[in-house]
Design a protein around this nucleic acid. Sequence first.
DNA 1: CCCGTAATATTACGCGCGTAAAATTATTAT
DNA 2: ATAATAATTTTACGCGCGTAATATTACGGG
Lengths: 343, 343
Amino acid sequence: MAGIKVGSMEEFAALIGISRPTVSKYFNDPNSVRRSTRERIEKSLERYDYRPNIYAVNQNRKLTKNIGIVVPYLADPFFAEIARRIERRCIDAGYWPILFSAHGEQKLENDILDSLRSLKPAGVLLAPLGRASDRSVIENFCRDVPTVLFDSEMEDVGVAFVGSDNPQFVSQITDYLCRSGEPPCFFEMKHPVNPNANKRRQAYFNSMQALGYEPHVVQVSGEGWAFEEIGRDGGGKALEAGQFATNTVLCSNDRLAIGFLAACYEKGLRVGRDSTCAIRVAGMDDHPFSRFTCPSLTTIAQNYDSVSRHSVDTLFRVIDGSYNTDQREKTLFEGTLIMRESA
Amino acid sequence: MAGIKVGSMEEFAALIGISRPTVSKYFNDPNSVRRSTRERIEKSLERYDYRPNIYAVNQNRKLTKNIGIVVPYLADPFFAEIARRIERRCIDAGYWPILFSAHGEQKLENDILDSLRSLKPAGVLLAPLGRASDRSVIENFCRDVPTVLFDSEMEDVGVAFVGSDNPQFVSQITDYLCRSGEPPCFFEMKHPVNPNANKRRQAYFNSMQALGYEPHVVQVSGEGWAFEEIGRDGGGKALEAGQFATNTVLCSNDRLAIGFLAACYEKGLRVGRDSTCAIRVAGMDDHPFSRFTCPSLTTIAQNYDSVSRHSVDTLFRVIDGSYNTDQREKTLFEGTLIMRESA
DNA sequence: CCCGTAATATTACGCGCGTAAAATTATTAT
DNA sequence: ATAATAATTTTACGCGCGTAATATTACGGG
C-alpha cells in the first residue's frame, strides 16, 4: 500500500493532475472538494506515500489541531487513566493530543505551559498541580489559550471547570459508614497538594455535624506525591499514638488509604467490616488498584467517564465557538459508593 | 521580565541591532557567537518577549530536537516511572521529549510510529507492545528513524536494546526462595504480552534444574494488560484446584503478584515467610506499589535508573554519531533482590 | 600600526504549505 | 441549450526561519 514517497504537496498534486490548492483544501476538509476529486485524491493517497509536512502546515495556521493535556503527576494511575480517556476522545475527534506531566514540580508546570504556548494549540485540558501551582502563570496562560480546567479547581481561571462533587463524595461515604458501624475519623495530609482535599475535609465536618456526630481529623505530615508512603508512615504513627477515636477511618483519597492499609497490616490489625476485624478503612476516588488491595477497598468511585468526556466536549464547544466564554461553567459529577471488603 | 511581544526573529534582530542570521546562529548554539554578542542577545531576551517559532524552525531543519518516547501501556506505573526518568534526562540534555502510549493496542502503536515519523525526531526510545506489535511496521520505522529499544526486546530491530537480565532476575530470586523454604512454583499468564515473560519462564526451568528441583508452572488465561485482575482471578482458581505443588509461588511480574496476593487474601491464606503463614509469594520488577501491598512484596528490583540512563545515553551516542550502527549493542542490567514480608 | 583570523553583516535563496483573488471549468436547474 | 452556481485552476504572496556565499568588521599579536 505504501508506494513511492512523495516529498511535497506540489509534487503530489502534479503527479495526480490536480492543482495544489485543491489538494490543500482536501486536507483541511475532505468534504470541501467535489466528490469525484475527493475519490481521486484518496485513491492516489494509497498509491503514493505522501503526507503533509506538519511543520509547514502548522506554521501557516493560526491554530493547529493540537490539544494539550497537562496533568500534575502521571505516575499516579488516576491521572494516567483519565489522561488515557481524554487522549482517546481527542484522537477520535480528529485532533492531535499531546500529553504532559508536571511530575509534581512547579517549574515543570510553568515550562510546560510555556512550551504549549508556542505549539499554538487549539485548546488545552489542564489539571493544575494545585497548591504548588503558580497561579499568575496559569492565569496568564489561560488568557492566551482556551483552557478547560479539570480535577483540580482554581477559581475564575480558564473558561470552564470539570471535576467531582467532593461534598457529595464525602456525604455519601460518611452516611454509609455511620449507618453500618462507628462514625469515621478523617485521615489526611496536613498540607495536601490537591485542593480537593480541603473540600473533602470541610465536607467531612459538615456531614458529621448533619448526622450528629463529633468529627475527628487526623493529619499527618509529608510533602509531595508519595501518598502511599505518607499514608503508611503517618498512619502507623497515628495508630501507635491512639489518635483514632473510633474504629473507622475515612482516608482523604485511595492512595492514602492504600498506605494506611499497609500500616494496619504491619500493626497486625485486621481490616474489614465483620466482627473479627479491628478497624474499617475507606477511601475516595476508586483508584485503579483499589480493588486489589487486601482487603479490597471500599471507596467512592470517581466518574472517570463523565469527567473525561465532559472536559473534552466542553473544550470542543469552546473551540467551535458554541460556548459562551463570559459565563464560566463549572460542572461537578457525583461519585458512586463502591462497597468492598475494607469497610 | 516578560516585555513587549516580538513576532519574528527579523523583528527581534532589528530591535537589538544584530543581524538575523547571527541571532539564528545564537539559538542553534549560544557559544557559536562572540561573547559580547551573546550577552547582548540574552539581555534583550529578558526585555522583549520573543521565542523562535517552533514550526518554522523545525521545517527548515532536517532533524529536530524532538525525541519520541513510546511505551506500551502508560497506566502501568512501571512504564510511567521509567518514562518519567527518560523524559527528565532528555529535557536536561536540551531535547524535547514527546511521550506516547500505545495503550496496549497494535493499531495505536502503528499510528504513533506514523505520526512520529512526520515529527522528524532526532531519535526515538521505544518499548514495543511485544507480542501484539506488528514487527514489520516497527522494522520499517527503525530503518528511517534512529531508534533505541528498551524493556521489550525484538531481535535485530533498532540500533540497540537496553533492558533487564531476566535470567539473572529469576536465578537470584529462585536461589533465595529455595534457600529459605520450599522451591517455588512459577505463576504466569498463558499468553503473556511481554516477551520478558517467556525469558523468565525459561530461566525458571534452568534455575530449578540447576538446583536439582522439579519445576512447576501454573499458567492462567487472560488477555491484555489487566494483570492484577488476571492474577487474582486465575490465581484464585488455581488455588482452589490445588495446582500449586509447593507453598511458594514466584509470579512472573509484580502486577500479577499483586493480583495473586488479593486471591490469597480472599481465600484466607496468610502470606509470608514465618511459620504462621500458609504460602509465600514473590514477584519481579519492584513495581512502585509493591512496597505497599499486604504483606509487602518480596521481589527483584528493576534497575530503573540504569535502564533509563543507558537508553538515553545510547540514543545520544547514535545522534551525535559516536555510535557504530553496524554493531547492535544489547545491554542487560541486573536486578536486586528486595526482601520484604511476602517471601 | 598592520596583518591574519575569527566573528558578524548582507544578500539571497529555499523550505512546504495556507490562502486570497481572479480566471476558468464543471454541474445543476430552468 | 443557456444561465446561474459551484468547484477548480492559476497566479501570487506570505509565513518564520535555516543556511550558504560573500563582504565587512572586530580582535589580538607582532
